[in-house]
């Protein structure tokens, strides 16, 4: 922001920014405050912005009603494996598309990108049949394999390719003169320099896996195998009505790692996008 603005204009600008932020901040505020309200207060009119009473038992109920710790662990380890796997697939693929000249490289890249245009709902039934044949239903394998070899990886490959294209080719030529093989150039020169892009890919991929909903409800049947987005829908009363406060307590716990990732990695994330030319 320009620093030569008068205090009055600055104040007005901050006021405007705060006002614009309300629609984005309010749902999170509502989620967190409602998680400690009794159900009756959640729908009270006029709504209570600041709860008049705090009922922390909802958080105990989250763990009492479902194997939430197990489900939390499921989400964590699946997202971690998917993130590492996607980086392992997309970085060499992106490098190859950026640097290795082979006939039809651009066409092949376009074909790969086209994968992004196919909605996951279209492929879910054939994928179900494939994983059924492989005996992987009600296991976590589909939730790991589909993102690593599917749309998130394609997007990550695109991000990595854009980064590697922007990397000065002289660095790699210097490495060739220094005696490095193609793989070593990738491993010791290109990849360490791609940290910002890898960070962006890691955040995208982690969030995608963390929020995955369709695949878990198709492939998983036992509560102890569930991941968090699927588990959230299971906090219902005997009439199948949502137990809003408990559900929102679980949602608050679910959102925590995402918030932490964003708070600590936002600079890397923005840098990564800037480097890959995806932003301004």
């Amino acid at each position: 922001m320009r620093t030569d603005l008068s205090p009055r204009i600055k104040l007005a600008l901050y006021g405007l920014l705060c006002t614009l932020a309300i629609p984005f901040v309010f749902p999170t505020w509502w989620m967190v405050t409602s998680s400690v309200k009794p159900i009756s207060q959640i729908f009270a009119f006029p709504p209570e912005i600041i709860p008049s009473s705090f009922d922390w038992s909802t958080y105990a109920d989250v763990f009492r009603l479902q194997p939430f710790a197990q489900q939390y662990w499921n989400s964590c380890y699946i997202a971690a494996i998917v993130t590492i796997g996607t980086m392992a697939v997309s970085s060499p693929a992106g490098y190859a598309f950026a640097r290795i000249k082979f006939p039809g490289a651009n066409l092949l890249f376009m074909v790969v990108l086209l994968g992004l245009l196919i909605p996951s709902e279209v492929t879910i039934v054939p994928l179900f049949q494939i994983f059924l044949k492989w005996g992987m239903i009600n296991t976590h394998w589909p939730l790991i394999l589909i993102p690593i070899f599917g749309a998130p990886s394609v997007f990550a490959t695109f991000v990595m390719r854009q980064f590697f294209i922007a990397l000065p080719v002289e660095l790699e030529e210097a490495a060739r003169v220094d005696g490095l093989s193609r793989f070593k150039i990738f491993w010791t020169i290109a990849l360490p320099l791609a940290k910002p892009a890898l960070a962006a890919v890691a955040i995208f991929t982690f969030l995608h896996s963390w929020n995955l909903y369709l695949e878990p409800i198709v492939f998983l049947t036992s509560p102890e195998k569930f991941t968090l987005p699927q588990a959230l829908t299971q906090y219902v009363d005997v009439y199948q009505g949502p137990m809003w406060n408990i559900q929102l307590a679980a949602a608050t716990l679910t959102a925590l790692p995402v918030l932490i990732v964003f708070i600590f990695a936002q600079r890397q994330f923005i840098e990564g996008l800037a480097h890959t030319g995806l932003k301004g």
Partner: peptide, 15 residues
């Protein structure tokens, strides 16, 4: 690497 040469680039190409 097999030509026993060293090269200095325009933009230096330092890692």
């Amino acid at each position: 690497k097999d030509r026993d040469i060293a090269m200095v680039f325009q933009n230096y190409a330092l890692y």
